[in-house]
Design a protein around this nucleic acid. Structure first.
Length: 226
DNA sequence: CACCAGGCCCTAT
DNA sequence: ATAGGGCATGGT
């Protein structure tokens, strides 16, 4: 059994699943919100919540030009009601509020945020209660378009199962990808998206996981046949 | 019916 | 340092 090398991962996934385009949907403002809502939550439920939010905003769009500002001035009860389908709505209401309070210090102006360097922004994001490393990096990568690789549970599983790597810390894994792949926002977005899409399709069942990226994998052959 | 999902925080060792 | 529990909805 010939296993691939980590630096071939992007090319292989691209070959199997194709280009991911804009994998994380929505405007930068929407991505900031959905980054909180998606924590340990099925994306379908996140979309329901985002639809609720956008609908509520459209109905009030004259009062609040910015989606973030609109959310900021909702009370907890209204916010919880909108995001309810995404689950954990009580904690997520609090977390969103912390994120929105931080954004308010920039007057909800993302161009003001974009003037700051990536390292400083990551520190600020991590200081927000409810924003951990993955959420912070997702915001940096997809909303602010910084070349920061996002490490999620799928990435760790993939490293463990395909490459037989011991569980390593978040930063170790991130540094590994930063070393192996050039600092390119589009590349990092797509590679992370590909890993998640791959995991959604295949990594649920354990036996497949160790094989699904191998050249002789039955699933790959099946895809190629179609 | 059980288990999972694009995490994080808090607490107890 | 690190393991475990809680948070909650909807899909499979």
């Amino acid at each position: 059994m010939e296993l691939m090398k980590l630096n071939e991962l992007h090319a292989k996934l691209l070959e199997i699943y194709g280009p991911q385009g804009k994998w994380w949907p929505g405007s930068s403002e929407e991505i900031l919100v959905s980054a909180i809502l998606t924590q340990n939550t099925n994306w379908v439920n996140v979309e329901r919540a985002m639809d609720n939010i956008k609908r509520a905003w459209n109905e009030n769009s004259k009062a609040h030009p910015s989606l973030l500002e609109f959310l900021y001035y909702l009370d907890d009860k209204q916010m919880a009601e909108l995001i309810k389908p995404a689950g954990f709505y009580n904690v997520k209401t609090v977390r969103l509020r912390h994120l929105l309070s931080w954004l308010k210090t920039y007057r909800f102006d993302l161009t003001a945020i974009e003037r700051k360097d990536t390292k400083a922004l990551r520190e600020e994001l991590l200081n927000i209660k409810g924003v951990g490393k993955e959420t912070a990096d997702s915001i940096l990568l997809y909303a602010l378009e910084r070349p920061v690789f996002v490490v999620d549970a799928y990435t760790k599983r993939l490293l463990n199962r395909i490459f037989n790597m011991k569980l390593e810390s978040y930063e170790q894994i991130q540094n590994l990808f930063h070393l192996i792949y050039p600092a390119n926002t589009q590349l990092y977005q797509e590679l992370h998206g590909l890993i998640v899409e791959h995991a959604k399709l295949l990594c649920r069942t354990r036996p497949l996981c160790t094989r699904c990226l191998i050249n002789s994998c039955w699933y790959r052959k099946k895809l190629q046949r179609e």
